[in-house]
Design a protein around this nucleic acid. Structure first.
Lengths: 350, 350
DNA sequence: CTGAAAGCGCTTACAG
DNA sequence: CTGAAAGCGCTTACAG
């Protein structure tokens, strides 16, 4: 008698135990090997047998158990994705790009949110290891480079996005923050600004560190004064924190006539600060943001900002693609994808 | 000789096969049973043995294989989440809420994006079945109610958010769209509007259907005229499609003096349409949106809109919580969580 | 407090 | 073209 009979009936009760390959084999009067062959579309099987087995599978509502298959094949068709935040528009769009390529190649996505916590990022990576995922993508890691590298080395395949990680260990999708800051600084210098400040981001991730470093280097190259007091770090970086920092900065250093900000949120805070402190934008203080989020078009004045030449969705796809190549072992040596950017000139720094 | 020796060395090469429980047992000179006990923090084990085993695990870098454990226990500690879109702010925020509660209870999230495709939604649900996830949450399903119900019945536990599904089969987080539309229509009627139109959404999901139905019912209750020609459906619903529909609507029916829109994007399109057609908002045509997204505060005129009394993040948490209850079998009978809303009155319909 | 054996539901060589 | 046996890495009763 068929052990999952109740499952076939139209009742609300759920099955304690589901239909297995053995059930199919028994009912179809073939071996499990044969059932396995039709599930996996293997050749060397008569069309008659195949159809018969398929028919039985439909009849009893059989679905193969991927957990068992993963254990047997040591391949999970899952990849872990570690994000510093999910509700941020930027990461949400990236996620959609990643999901798209992965799904197209039959991979599934185990979603992890580190919430920018180092501890949690580590826990997550350990868990992903226990899940035996086929690969991992880490976005904007907040872990020290050595720690991250050690953690990723333990994964079957890995990609780091805007994270400092050994290129021997993981594929890399990176942003040339030095060049970006150079564009911003040169633009301000060209319009006559001479005392530039930086509303920076967290020094716990690559973007924050590199933008700060790039800002300083760009100043030097442009022959402008570098004053450490004109550089502040927001943590976390949002309008409010940035506002507070910017007010203090502008009050203590009235000479500042230009501000390069970590991102558009920080720039919005700086904009408000100028209003409070009584400085006109861009005449007294010019402001440049980063990311070109929706809001940068509706502030007044509108925001001059840096943006990737690729869509955010495209950036996610690139990261997914890179991981797939590594999973499939088609990766020859170090792989580094560099995302370019451009300056979008609006009113805050014409 | 230890088979994963190379894994312990500081090389870039990755292990073909990882450390297993058997390796730990052998090296610690205990049985696998004992190792299993320390992994799972079971009692009945001497502190000395426990510490010794833990030490060995650390030494050889052992991480338990959750795939094997899942197979043995028939429990995956994973839940599937099916979304119609990832990059939409609304769903991104919900996702963060879901991820949060799930992680707090040691569950992981298999993320799926249906892209509003019925076919893909079905494929996804089948795949999740094969993954033997402990539960599934479907957001704003585009599947016919009977199909969705049948699919969810096959899952170990399920929750539907704003989806028509049999409450015997899944927990439900739902929005009382009838009441919402009632608020919108009454507000317009109270300000003297008499000929109301509806810029609706897709009829392939509950929100679209219910808002339309609620709109009509509210008109009837308010004693206002119901004219099917004054109701249009946008598919997909975005500013451009809405703009096109609204222009046609306003040109063909100049008498219309109020528009209730499916969401804020649709309302923004309607706003633009009024400008093009030469109708003043709110004097000639009053407009009401839905969702209270960021943009509704910066349009001119600003947008009167409906919003949930709970944060979007909170809505995600509620859905996650509900699923956990069902997974743990603490669910007594039908479970329906209703999300309330309120009218945010701004300039477009004062 | 500790262990030997069977089983979870598949796949992988290996035979025939 | 088809099948019997062993194995993937854990856990679950059951003994002692």
């Amino acid at each position: 008698v068929y052990k999952n009979q109740s499952y076939l009936e139209n009742t609300v009760s759920r099955p304690k135990t589901r239909v297995t390959m053995a059930d199919v084999a028994q009912r179809a009067e073939v071996s499990m090997m044969t059932v396995s062959r039709v599930i996996n579309n293997k050749p060397d099987i008569s069309e008659k047998t195949r159809q018969h087995v398929l028919q039985i599978m439909r009849e009893i509502g059989y679905r193969p158990n991927r957990i068992a298959r993963s254990l047997a094949t040591d391949k999970s068709f899952k990849v872990g994705v570690v994000m510093p935040s999910l509700a941020t528009a930027f990461y949400a769009e990236i996620l959609e790009g990643v999901e798209q390529v992965l799904w197209e190649h039959n991979y599934n996505l185990l979603l992890c949110n580190s919430g920018r916590s180092q501890k949690r990022e580590q826990d997550l990576l350990h868990m992903l290891e226990e899940d035996r995922v086929d690969g991992v993508i880490v976005f904007s890691s907040h872990l020290p480079p050595a720690t991250l590298t050690a953690l990723l080395k333990r994964q079957r395949a890995a990609v780091g996005f805007s994270s400092d990680v050994d290129p021997q260990v993981a594929g890399i999708v990176t942003i040339d923050e030095m060049a970006a800051m150079n564009k911003a600084v040169n633009h301000l210098a060209a319009s006559g600004k001479r005392a530039l400040g930086h509303i920076g981001g967290s020094q716990n991730n690559r973007a924050g560190r590199e933008r700060c470093r790039g800002f300083v280097t760009a100043l030097q190259q442009a022959g402008l004064k570098v004053n450490p007091d004109w550089i502040v770090a927001c943590e976390p970086v949002n309008e409010n924190i940035s506002f507070t920092h910017a007010v203090a900065l502008l009050e203590q250093h009235p000479c500042i006539d230009g501000l390069v900000c970590f991102n558009d949120y920080a720039a919005v805070g700086a904009l408000q600060a100028c209003r409070i402190v009584g400085r006109r934008v861009p005449d007294d203080v010019a402001i440049i943001g980063y990311d070109d989020i929706l809001i940068s078009r509706v502030t007044s004045p509108t925001l001059t900002t840096l943006r990737y030449t690729q869509t955010t969705h495209g950036v996610g796809k690139a990261a997914g693609q890179l991981l797939l190549e590594r999973i499939n072992g088609r990766a020859g040596g170090e792989q580094i994808v560099v995302i370019d950017h451009e300056l979008v000139i609006r009113e805050s720094a014409p």
